[in-house]
């Protein structure tokens, strides 16, 4: 266990709710509005944690357990992730498989909780969530396979961190893997062009509708879990692109954080400049993600 990583882990747990705030500020800037404060999600969480709750009479313990499972799985997944300069708290061969399946566990319970309310609206969201993630999961794992192949390492700290190989050879592979990971990020976090978090109820079919019936501390947990997930995918993406950069741990941490801010800005820009795709077109986007990931593996083969 690498105890030095406790610092970055604590930072991730504390700073994750900043990312949605950043995205919202970028969107407000493009729309010519002032936008909500950067720390809005913190205010929301603090408010929700102080409130009582209303439960649907239809729901069972599954509905009440799901937010806790989501936060626990997200926090543990973050413990497997290296951040700037420091390897993860725990690194072992195959840790990324656990990471993917921890996210799967959180999703499974989120979807069950949505179905637990008996609302057809939430059923709709649940159905789309599982459909898209079933197609995104292979892209995620194949992109990681490409990185594993290029770095010769089977743990996230190795395959997202170390250099090796010459840059001109590695760069196309990294870019392709990053493209796949970016598409997975947009899908898994229900952002444009897969889903539009703005249109709170009418069109938003993924994340927002799944947590529609939550209130009080449960809603706070659910929102926090979503923020952790965004941080997590952002971190994977940033480490993929910048992991090979040399530098002292302090410099690397700075690069890592700057990278995360850039990812949030990029998501905000995409969201400001694009419309949501028609739902039937989303699988095509995910096929593209799979194709990018496969191409990355192909390039990796050429090296080996």
């Amino acid at each position: 266990m690498n105890t030095v990583a406790l610092g970055p882990l604590a930072l991730a747990l504390a700073a994750a709710p900043l990312l949605p705030g950043l995205i919202n500020r970028v969107k407000a800037f493009f729309a010519g509005r002032r936008g909500p404060p950067l720390f809005q999600l913190y205010y929301d969480l603090a408010k929700l944690l102080r409130k009582g709750a209303v439960y649907s009479r239809t729901t069972t313990w599954v509905f009440r357990a799901s937010p806790a499972v989501g936060v626990a799985a997200g926090a543990l997944a973050l413990a497997l992730l290296p951040s700037g300069g420091t390897p993860a708290l725990l690194a072992f061969p195959g840790d990324f498989v656990l990471l993917v399946y921890l996210l799967g566990l959180a999703r499974f319970f989120l979807v069950l909780a949505a179905l637990d309310t008996g609302s057809s609206f939430e059923g709709l969201g649940a159905s789309r969530e599982v459909a898209f993630s079933a197609l995104a999961e292979p892209a995620f794992l194949i992109a990681l396979a490409a990185l594993a192949r290029a770095s010769g390492s089977l743990s996230l700290s190795g395959l997202l961190g170390a250099g090796g190989g010459e840059l001109p050879v590695r760069l196309p592979l990294l870019l392709l893997a990053a493209a796949a990971l970016m598409l997975v990020l947009l899908t898994e976090n229900a952002r444009v062009p897969v889903d539009d978090p703005n249109t709170h109820l009418e069109l938003t079919m993924l994340h927002e509708v799944l947590v529609l019936d939550y209130s009080g501390p449960d809603l706070a947990f659910a929102l926090y879990a979503a923020a952790l997930k965004l941080w997590l995918f952002g971190a994977v993406l940033v480490r993929t692109l910048t992991g090979w950069l040399p530098g002292s741990p302090a410099l690397q941490t700075a690069i890592f954080l700057a990278g995360l801010v850039t990812v949030a800005l990029a998501v905000g820009v995409i969201e400001s400049c694009m419309a949501r795709l028609r739902l039937t077109r989303v699988p095509h986007l995910l096929i593209a993600a799979n194709a990018f990931a496969l191409l990355a593996v192909l390039l990796g083969m050429r090296q080996g």
Binding site: G52, A68, L201, D213
Partner: peptide, 26 residues
């Protein structure tokens, strides 16, 4: 961790109003 979070949730809700209603139906 899940158990701890469940306990936290329980403790937060203990002295507050927790009510039951129908599923929100738009």
């Amino acid at each position: 961790l899940t158990a701890v979070l469940a306990v936290v949730r329980h403790a937060l809700l203990r002295k507050r109003r927790v009510s039951a209603a129908g599923t929100w139906d738009c």
